[in-house]
Design a protein around this nucleic acid. Structure first.
Lengths: 231, 231
DNA sequence: AATTTACGATACGGACCCGTCTCGTATCGG
DNA sequence: CCGATACGAGACGGGTCCGTATCGTAAATT
């Protein structure tokens, strides 16, 4: 059991590399002697992975051999930079989904919520993000390292951001204080995520969607005793 | 391109079988001559697939070879019933997720909504359903037949049920009529699905969760001008 | 009993893959 | 110029898998 992928997992091989990119602090240490690594090759590799993702390849289709071919690169050139397939994908995912966590943006809590929902909507329009999210949910389940990384790098900070905004809303008296913060978060984030992840045919290119969703959640789905306006 | 799985896709081979199960109308046609198919073997195969799913195997780990071994069955016994791996998994999924669409259940619209949300919650507790949902979202993307089947057999009827309930709610004046039916559906279903699919560590064993969620969505996340109760 | 079909096991060819290694060539420092 | 390292291409051994075929055996019909 725990057979997983077939990947060995250990740092064997040469691999004194640091991958050039992910450890920025290594910088000037040793301007090594021979021919330098080709920056172009590295970018071609990463770009090919991203392109293959966009084209809908499953996790299995993302083989080193395919990636190398797509990038016009020898397999050795990949293995010189990453110890194995897992590391490559983890790296690509990390830089793909690295949090540019949208700044709180809104002055109002409502504006912040709208900004957050709209960020999710816009991400849903990007095929790569969709791929990552859906694959992360599915196949990645049997791939602990990648799953943990994804949760740590993408889900958790976003969830934390959401909670902060919502906590602020509760403190300011804009959001109900008789509900769990988690429940409130789910109420706000749930609708757009459903549309993003689950119902692929649902339209996402509606600019005003986020605003309508947030307002609807704030106001409630039920009929209100007397009329109400939100802004 | 469109290489996909490696599966050939065509109905080659013997395959006069009808799989015994999925085409129920074939019944008594020919009480064939030799030794009859072992019902036990068939059940063992299906059970093994389900068990492997529950244990978290990815789509790739669900190989015919593994399934046969897990079921204590020869590969030929599988191929005598299903033409290929795809057909087997489609079949298992179909009978696993076949709609026992929970009857409308509630007299009130609110009760119906709660029943629906609670059904999702309970399904989220079943590992198999979780596997199917998450795998369907992820890896199944590059597997058209299975994806279509899943959408047709699971997602669509549930979505339709939700819309019916919600439409009834709008007609009865319980739900706002100034919102899209789809938006209302997402508001109701989104929160529980988020918790089911996305945040795996979130607890689902709270019996009153569905009720609280529905009420929260009905009442709204925002603070109401005057106090309000729903029931 | 003879025939027919299913059974579990397992061998097979073909395909893909991983990660290493070897080519011949290019590009760097010294 | 020379040693060192990188490059693309691809061979290689070892592995898993698919779907078929072949064992000897078991359970039905005729």
């Amino acid at each position: 059991m725990t057979d997983q992928r077939g990947g060995r997992g250990g740092q064997n091989g040469p691999m004194q590399t640091e991958t050039t990119a992910p450890v920025p602090g290594e910088g000037s240490c040793a301007p090594r002697r021979g021919r330098p690594r080709s920056e172009a090759a590295e970018q071609a590799i990463v770009a090919s992975v991203e392109r293959l993702m966009e084209e809908g390849s499953g996790l299995t289709e993302l083989s080193i051999e395919r990636i190398a071919a797509a990038a016009g690169v020898g397999k050795a050139t990949i293995y010189r930079r990453w110890p194995n397939k897992e590391a490559l994908l983890v790296d690509v995912l990390a830089r793909l989904e690295q949090m540019p966590v949208p700044p709180h943006a809104g002055a109002t809590v409502r504006d912040s919520l709208i900004a957050m929902v709209d960020d999710i909507r816009r991400r849903g329009l990007a095929k790569r993000s969709r791929w990552v999210l859906k694959t992360a949910l599915g196949q990645l389940d049997s791939w602990p390292e990648l799953r943990v990384l994804y949760k740590e790098k993408v889900i958790k900070p976003r969830r934390e951001l959401a909670r902060q905004i919502i906590r602020r809303g509760v403190e300011e008296g804009v959001l109900r204080d008789d509900l769990d913060v988690d429940l409130l978060t789910e109420m706000v984030v749930g609708p757009i995520l459903i549309r993003t992840v689950l119902w692929e045919d649902a339209p996402l290119d509606d600019e005003g969607l986020a605003e309508r969703m947030v307002d609807a959640v704030l106001t409630g789905a039920g009929v209100r005793p007397s009329g109400g306006e939100s802004h």
